[in-house]
């Protein structure tokens, strides 16, 4: 309840600084701020991986395979987090892995958001047959469980990083389309839209400039949570050998690589999974905070 009051107060002062109002509501949620901090850290690591990483992620040091991380006995100070089965530096691979995972997550989110907005607005504006076709196709995509659909798509177009992005995008597209369509339909019946129509605004401008900004709050929340879902899904595909192919340092694929080593060298398996978990958790925390700050109506999870 306390945050509702803040939002209401901040809302009144919103015109001079919408961002400040948002930040006041967002920063009240401790978890969300922690999430944001971790996400920022991961983003920085991903961007500056070539500078931060001590070695090339695919370079194999023949003499120093399967070294443990620094806290364990027998570790080598040159390889802080140890090395994998063929002597690649774990720290460097994990840093580059952040790049790949975030790249997948963001690409999926951006592409499905752009396509989803276009299809959702089209369905809401045209109605009739176009609406029915779009909604039916989306229902069909949702009827097939996400991982199975992704596997089906990968089985046809072959496993690779790009194809992972394509498959996961198709899987998550319906969420955006349905969300945009539903909010646009709700907005279209409002007076300000009628006013804009009477004022002579054309359909394209009406949908993009007048209606779309009012559908943004739930869309942003969906986008944030969509990034973490996409990262998990892509890591799962990588683990099954249907995602990024070796020697790409993708976290899911790294996990799959190390299954034989699991018993004798558990850290090689533990670290990539921990990275996935922490990144996804941070994004989810941030997403929950975004939802609470942007739209208190959506608060029930």
């Amino acid at each position: 309840m306390a945050s509702d009051v803040t939002i209401a107060k901040a809302g009144q002062a919103a015109p001079p600084g919408a961002f400040r109002a948002f930040w006041a509501a967002f920063s009240e949620n401790r978890g969300a701020v922690i999430g944001l901090a971790v996400v920022c850290a991961v983003v920085l690591i991903a961007i500056f991986a070539p500078l931060l990483a001590p070695y090339d992620p695919v370079e194999q040091f023949k003499g120093s395979t399967r070294l443990p991380p620094f806290w364990a006995e027998g570790s080598d100070p040159r390889y802080i987090l140890g090395t994998d089965a063929v002597g690649r530096d774990m720290l460097s691979r994990l840093m580059y892995g952040a790049r790949i995972s975030l790249f997948i997550g963001l690409s999926v989110m951006i592409v499905s958001m752009v396509v989803g907005v276009a299809m959702g607005l089209a369905a809401a504006w045209f109605g009739g047959l176009i609406d029915v076709v779009i909604i039916r196709v989306m229902d069909l995509i949702m009827a097939i469980p996400s991982l199975v659909l992704a596997i089906l798509i990968i089985a046809i177009i072959g496993p690779s990083l790009t194809n992972t992005i394509i498959a996961v995008t198709i899987v998550y597209l319906p969420r955006y389309v349905r969300l945009v369509r539903a909010s646009a339909l709700a907005e279209l019946s409002k007076d300000y839209v009628t006013a804009a129509k009477v004022a002579g605004v054309g359909p394209f401008r009406l949908m993009t400039v007048t209606v779309l900004p009012n559908c943004l709050a739930p869309l942003i929340v969906q986008g944030a949570l969509g990034v973490s879902d996409a990262i998990l899904e892509a890591a799962g595909l990588g683990f099954l050998g249907l995602g990024a192919q070796p020697p790409t340092p993708e976290w899911g694929a790294m996990l799959a690589d190390t299954r034989d080593l699991m018993l004798s060298h558990p850290w090689v398996m533990a670290l990539p999974g921990l990275c996935i978990l922490l990144t996804v958790m941070a994004i989810n925390l941030m997403g929950d905070g975004l939802r609470d700050a942007l739209d208190p109506r959506l608060r029930k999870s």
Binding site: G31, S228, L232, A235, G236, F239, G252, L255, M269, P272, G273, L274, I276, L277, V280, M281, N284, L285, D288
Partner: peptide, 11 residues
């Protein structure tokens, strides 16, 4: 939240 974010293959 941890459970929700868990890569289950790793778990």
């Amino acid at each position: 939240l941890t459970g929700y974010s868990m890569p289950i293959f790793w778990w």
